[in-house]
Structure formats: structure tokens, C-alpha cells
């Protein structure tokens, strides 16, 4: 996969309205697996209609309510997520952004007391449909966590883990190619190419986080979610990861939870502001920064609370 670099433009002016480069068509029309095996044709038809559209809709959240045993944590969330955008979820601690993120790959299913109402669509599929294969959903919607969490195995095996889950009999050479490509995409290859057999835990924090990004990329996701990926990193590593995300944007749809408003302004195209489990406002990052529609948003963006 060749990484085009429209991101460079965004670095100069992050507020340019987002257009879709053709880069994604190959990715999306290629060997994409259907969430529901028997609906492959339907998916193909849907994709054909998406061609040449700008800002096509990738995911759509409709009337989402969610509860833990402690009570309601998300209330009436409606949010579209577009192809090839970087969407930043912002808001004070405990406002539900991480919970929201974990609804999108059904990671909340692991929590027994979690309950959810509403609809989340990925392309034409309701991801909470009982027929959905969770493994395929989670491959399509990759995730990077708040703290770097490499598996207790070598750098190579960390990246290869998800690929081996998909294809147990994959050839070693093929696997090595995927690992190298993923590490290159995560701009970690040059630093680790001579020590692929060393434990992933021996890397520095910033390297570990990029390893986790490579691990997520290796299964060829379409959407990448990051839950405060820089919160435990120093400014240099943070800058490294931000640059990386801007590059990845060409091929992926990226959703990032961040506490760092400056970071959201630097890298995102759209922002969604959460407060006490409600989605207060969402929109173009530039517009929202200059003219927020709601008072709460303005107060938060000005640093009056949060």
C-alpha cells in the first residue's frame, strides 16, 4: 500500500475542508470481507454507489443510549463518521468519550453490566446485529489504547498476532512482509528492523505506542480508534504520533479521543464535544474552534472548565 501524502497540506493548514483522495478506493474495493458472509453482494453494490462521492459516510451512530451498573453513561448520541477524516472526541474526564469509542468495536461487550440502546451502523450493517461476527468487526475497526500495551512477546510476534488469528497457515515470508509494511506505516521500522526478536516491552514508551499502532494496522483495518494515545508520552513522541496519524489519514478513517485540545486542533478535521454523557456539539474543527454553537463548548474550549 502506497501512502500518499495529502497530510502534508493539512499540516500547513489543518483547517482545509476535507476531500477524499482516490487512494481509498483500492483499499475499500479490494479484498474487503463482508461482516455477514452472505451479504457480500449487497456490500459490493453499496461500495459502487459510494465511488466519487465526497466525504462519504462510514459509520453512523443513531440515538445511542448506554448504561453501566452505575447508571446511564451515554444519552441520545447521534454522530456521523466520514471516510478519511480524523475525528477528535473531546470533553472532560468521565464525559463518556471512551465509552462511546468502545461501543464502536463492541469492546464494551466484555463488561457484564453494560447495556446499550440505539443503532450503530458501519456501512450498511448494524454492528449490534446478532449475526455480526465480532472478530471481523474488530478487525475492521482497530483500536489503540491509552497506555502502550504490547503483548509479552517479540516485536515481530506483536505485529503478527492479529494476522495469525486471521490466517493460521500464513507463509512466513508473507507474514514477514505484512509485519514490515505495518511497522513502516507506523514509522517504527527503521528503529526496530535489527531487533525484531526482542521483546516488545524493551522499547521506549513512544516506540511501544507506535508498535501498538503497527499491531492494529497489521490486520488491515478500515477505521482506527485511538483512546488518548499520547496521554502517557512525552512531547517528542506525541509529535511523532500526530505526524503518523496525519499520514495514515490518507488510507484510514481515524477516531481519536483526546484530552489535549491543542492536539485536537492540530490534527483533527472534525471535533465532537461530549459533556456528562451527552454529545453537545460536533462539526468542522476550524469552525467549532472559532464559533462554537453552544455555550458549554465555548467554555470548555476557552479552558473555563475541564
Amino acid at each position: 500500500m502506497i501512502l500518499k501524502d495529502p497530510a502534508k497540506d493539512s499540516i500547513k493548514d489543518p483547517f482545509v475542508p476535507l476531500t477524499i483522495p482516490g487512494a481509498l478506493e483500492k483499499n475499500r474495493n479490494g479484498d474487503q470481507k463482508s461482516l455477514l458472509g452472505n451479504q457480500k453482494n449487497l456490500l459490493k453494490g453499496e461500495k459502487a454507489s459510494l465511488k466519487n462521492q465526497e466525504n462519504s459516510l462510514r459509520m453512523e451512530v443513531k440515538n445511542l443510549d448506554a448504561w453501566y451498573s452505575s447508571g446511564q453513561v451515554l444519552e441520545r448520541i447521534n454522530l456521523p463518521i466520514f471516510e478519511n477524516e480524523i475525528l477528535a472526541l473531546i470533553g472532560p474526564s468521565g464525559c463518556g468519550k471512551s465509552t462511546f469509542l468502545r461501543c464502536l468495536n463492541r469492546l464494551n461487550d466484555l463488561i457484564k453490566s453494560f447495556r446499550l440502546q440505539g443503532q450503530i451502523k458501519l456501512d450498511d450493517f448494524d454492528i449490534y446485529d446478532p449475526g455480526i461476527d465480532l472478530a471481523i468487526l474488530r478487525r475492521k475497526v482497530g483500536m489503540v489504547f491509552q497506555h502502550p500495551n504490547p503483548f509479552p512477546m517479540s516485536i515481530f510476534d506483536n505485529v503478527a498476532f492479529g494476522v495469525r488469528e486471521i490466517n493460521r497457515r500464513i507463509k512466513r515470508t508473507e507474514l514477514a512482509e505484512i509485519v514490515e509494511e505495518s511497522l513502516r506505516q507506523a514509522s517504527l521500522w527503521d528503529e526496530v528492523k535489527d531487533k525484531l526478536n526482542v521483546s516488545g516491552l524493551s522499547l521506549s514508551g513512544g516506540q511501544q505506542q507506535r508498535l501498538c499502532i503497527a499491531r492494529a494496522l497489521a490486520v488491515r483495518p478500515e477505521i482506527i480508534m485511538l483512546d488518548e494515545p499520547c496521554s502517557s508520552l512525552d512531547p517528542v513522541s506525541t509529535a511523532h504520533i500526530e505526524e503518523l496519524l496525519l499520514m495514515l489519514r490518507a488510507d484510514y478513517t481515524i477516531i481519536i479521543v483526546t484530552h489535549n485540545l491543542a492536539q485536537a486542533r492540530r490534527i483533527s478535521h472534525r471535533m465532537a464535544f461530549f459533556l456528562s454523557g451527552r454529545l453537545i456539539e460536533h462539526g468542522n474543527t476550524a469552525e467549532m474552534s472559532i464559533r462554537p454553537q453552544c455555550e458549554e463548548t465555548e467554555n470548555y474550549l476557552c479552558g473555563r472548565f475541564g
Binding site: N105, L107, L110, L134, A135, I136, L137, R138, R139, G142, M143, F145, Q146, H147, N149, F151, P152, F161, G162, E165, I166, C212, R215, A216, V219
Partner: peptide, 21 residues
């Protein structure tokens, strides 16, 4: 816990998470 979550987030099954991670 985040290690288990990372495994599940890559589409691994419970058995794979338990034995490999």
C-alpha cells in the same frame, strides 16, 4: 486488563487471549 482488551480488539477469541497473551 488492557492486554486482554488489546487481544479482543484484534479479533482474538477467549482461548487465544487466555493462552497466547
Amino acid at each position: 486488563h488492557s492486554l486482554r482488551e488489546a487481544g479482543f480488539a484484534l479479533g482474538a477469541t477467549k482461548f487465544e487471549v487466555a493462552t497466547k497473551i
